[in-house]
């Protein structure tokens, strides 16, 4: 197990983490501000990826594709918020889960109807494909480095938005006391639509960025959605900082656990058994992490409420 392999895996974990952050940031804002469990967040991720693939197919421009992904996901988000979700703010969580689960089915079959059952093609742009050699002789894909950069930049931008702008103040106030900011004259339903569109755009961006190295197909959002929920539970609901730390923790745990746990078990077990036990434990690792965090801090790392 060389140092190069370890560094490469840490970079992989970091890259996975920042992409999870893009999903989790929207989810945690929507949950924190509106108190809404949005299972359809994964569908917005899928909408972003399909929009990017369609636009990249026509124009050949990756930057335009990313813009289209964010735009399409934001529009889908606004439609969903105004048509369906607005009616559910006062309903209990079970009704929200039911309605947003229905949205998953509608989005999935709608996408299949529009784009067909076969996966779409979306590739990394030529200026970002291929490996680069990092100091120390590590070869690493340029595109994944770019993903880390984009993710961290979005995190910084969101942090500024939340802490330094008027909108950010309203969002934080909305999390703390909905009635009060409504009484102070802030148009709460416009704020909700805005937050939903922002979260949706981030999910769409993640879908397009990840779709370029994975496959763009119906149902691609749901596995990521589950991990994003783990992230916001670990980070604390409503906290952007928590989402970032939680996402990177989950990314690193998942990636490094999958590599090193089998190696650890090989120290005192037969190789075949060690691989099986190690892999089994690795796939549980993030949930064990989540359990441990919840025992230590029941509201999550940076969460204010349970």
């Amino acid at each position: 197990m060389s140092a190069i392999l370890i560094i490469e895996q840490v970079l992989n974990g970091l890259q996975f983490g920042v992409m999870l952050f893009l999903m989790a940031a929207g989810l945690t804002l929507i949950f924190g501000v509106m108190g809404l469990i949005n299972l359809a967040h994964g569908s917005l991720y899928m909408v972003g990826a399909f929009a990017a693939a369609a636009v990249a197919g026509v124009t050949g421009s990756f930057v335009l594709a990313l813009a289209a992904a964010m735009g399409a996901a934001a529009i889908a988000g606004v439609l969903v918020e105004t048509l369906v979700i607005r009616r559910l703010y006062r309903a209990d969580h079970l009704d929200q889960v039911l309605a947003t689960f229905a949205l998953i089915l509608i989005f999935s079959e709608g996408t299949r109807w529009a784009f067909g059952s076969f996966p779409l093609f979306l590739d990394t742009p030529s200026w970002a494909s291929g490996p680069v050699t990092l100091p120390g002789g590590i070869e690493y894909p340029k595109y994944r480095l770019m993903l880390i950069g984009v993710g961290l930049a979005v995190a910084a931008g969101l942090g500024l938005l939340i802490t330094r702008t008027r909108i950010g103040i309203q969002i934080r106030a909305g999390e703390n006391d909905r009635e009060m900011i409504a009484a102070l004259g802030v148009d709460i339903s416009r704020l909700y639509t805005l937050v939903f569109a922002l979260g949706a755009a981030l999910a769409g961006l993640a879908g397009a960025l990840v779709g370029a190295i994975q496959s763009v197909q119906v149902g691609m959002g749901e596995p990521v959605l589950i991990l994003a929920f783990v992230v916001i539970v670990i980070g604390g609901i409503g906290s952007i900082k928590g989402a970032l730390i939680g996402a990177i923790l989950v990314g690193l745990t998942d990636t490094l656990g999958g590599i090193f746990l089998p190696e650890v078990f090989k120290l005192f077990m037969a190789p075949a058994g060690a691989t099986a036990t190690g892999s089994a434990l690795a796939s549980m690792a993030i949930y064990i992490l989540m359990g441990a965090v919840l025992i230590w801090r029941p509201t999550g790392l940076f969460g204010a409420r349970p």
Partner: peptide, 19 residues
């Protein structure tokens, strides 16, 4: 190596292949 069914990111496995 056995991966998860439905896994979408193979960066970790590719690093193992390289090594």
């Amino acid at each position: 190596v056995f991966t998860d069914l439905g896994q979408t990111d193979y960066a970790a496995e590719i690093a193992q292949i390289r090594a």
